[in-house]
């Protein structure tokens, strides 16, 4: 291996690492606030990318019907709750957000000439379809069992993952797709050729990480989420609704997932089940950060990306083995150095 190959591999590793970093941050966030190990995180990557593909092909994305279905279901559940507790005033808001929004979006998608819209609008529409599925998923699946032990939440996550993969096959079919690159630009940096899309991925990841940092540090909602993550009961006593915190967290997780999908769709072929493996590598990174530390998780993600790139050069047949074996020394080191007290059981 010469220096140029090493540089190319490093570039590849960092591009993938940036995506793993975003997913690792989402996983850490979801776990910290809701104690859910969010296996379906990767599905949002595939859903985001493939929804964009469908929009670019001029079809109304099939995922829209999942959104409409989940929205109507949530509207029914919330409306019953509002009626039972005698809060008729909330009814209009509940119906407008849960059922009204998906239907308006559906009308919009049917009326717009999807294939000819500028890329930025197509991406925005894809995000508008996928991102609200996050809070709806929390409302319908996790909120009713919010107090359950971590293990139950994990099992439910696995079930949601399997369900979403199955729906993905139904929506998108078995074959993969790619989207055109955001920019066809290429830059020569020394001996390397850097593509515009690589810069997009890395820059978008950095912007998103900085934005999240600002969100948690400066906004009231961000602080509320941090408070919930640190001490759930304490936050509740301070008037922070755990349901709101949960929904907000899932909104962010879905946003990060769908955006990651949109970013990598031009670099690699995305299948209905691609998300799982990407999510799993983000998970390895999140474990490196102990499911608690954002900076260490992000660094872990870059490490996973680099390890993957270099192991694919030296021992391509064992690449996945090498990446996932990373988790064993990390867990050993974590369990030897930290004195963690189980909060339940």
């Amino acid at each position: 291996m010469d220096f140029q190959i090493a540089l190319l591999l490093a570039q590849d590793g960092i591009t993938n690492g940036a995506i793993y970093a975003l997913l690792a941050l989402a996983l850490v966030l979801v776990f910290a606030v809701t104690r859910v190990i969010f296996i379906p995180q990767g599905e949002f990557v595939a859903y985001g990318a493939l929804t964009l593909v469908m929009i670019q092909a001029g079809h109304v994305p099939a995922t829209l019907w999942l959104l409409v279905g989940a929205g109507v279901l949530a509207a029914v559940v919330d409306a019953r709750g509002a009626l039972a507790s005698g809060q008729k005033g909330r009814l209009a808001g509940v119906l407008a957000w849960n059922a009204g929004y998906p239907l308006v979006l559906a009308a919009l998608l049917y009326l717009l000439p999807l294939a000819t819209l500028p890329l930025a609008v197509q991406v925005l529409l894809a995000l508008l379809v996928i991102v609200p599925m996050g809070p709806l998923m929390y409302r319908l699946i996790y909120q009713p069992i919010a107090a359950a032990p971590v293990l139950i939440l994990l099992i439910v996550s696995v079930a949601v993952h399997v369900g979403m993969v199955g729906l993905g096959l139904l929506f998108f079919g078995a074959e993969g797709s790619r989207t055109p690159a955001f920019s066809e630009a290429r830059f020569e940096v020394g001996p390397m050729m850097v593509t515009g899309q690589t810069i997009w991925v890395v820059a978008a990841s950095i912007v998103l990480i900085v934005a999240l940092y600002q969100f948690f540090g400066r906004t009231i909602y961000g602080k509320a989420l941090r408070a919930t993550a640190m001490n759930r009961n304490g936050a509740r006593l301070m008037g922070i609704s755990p349901a709101l915190a949960g929904r907000l967290t899932f909104l962010l997780a879905a946003l990060i997932g769908a955006l990651s999908g949109v970013l990598i769709a031009p670099i690699t072929t995305i299948y209905y089940d691609t998300g799982f493996l990407i999510g799993l590598k983000g998970f390895v990174a999140a474990i490196v950060g102990g499911l608690a530390s954002y900076p260490i998780a992000a660094a872990g993600a870059v490490l996973v990306g680099l390890l993957e790139a270099f192991s694919s050069f030296w021992a391509s047949a064992y690449k996945e083995v090498i990446v996932f074996t990373l988790i064993i020394p990390v867990l050993l080191w974590r369990s030897l150095t930290s004195h963690h007290v189980e909060e339940e059981e």
Binding site: L8, N16, I267, D273, L277, E308, A309, F310, F313, K319
Partner: peptide, 20 residues
Amino acid sequence: NERFARTDTSVTGQVLKIMA
């Protein structure tokens, strides 16, 4: 002689090695 997985998102390493 290189390998890749059908779920891989990048094969840069293998391709560089073959081209070498």
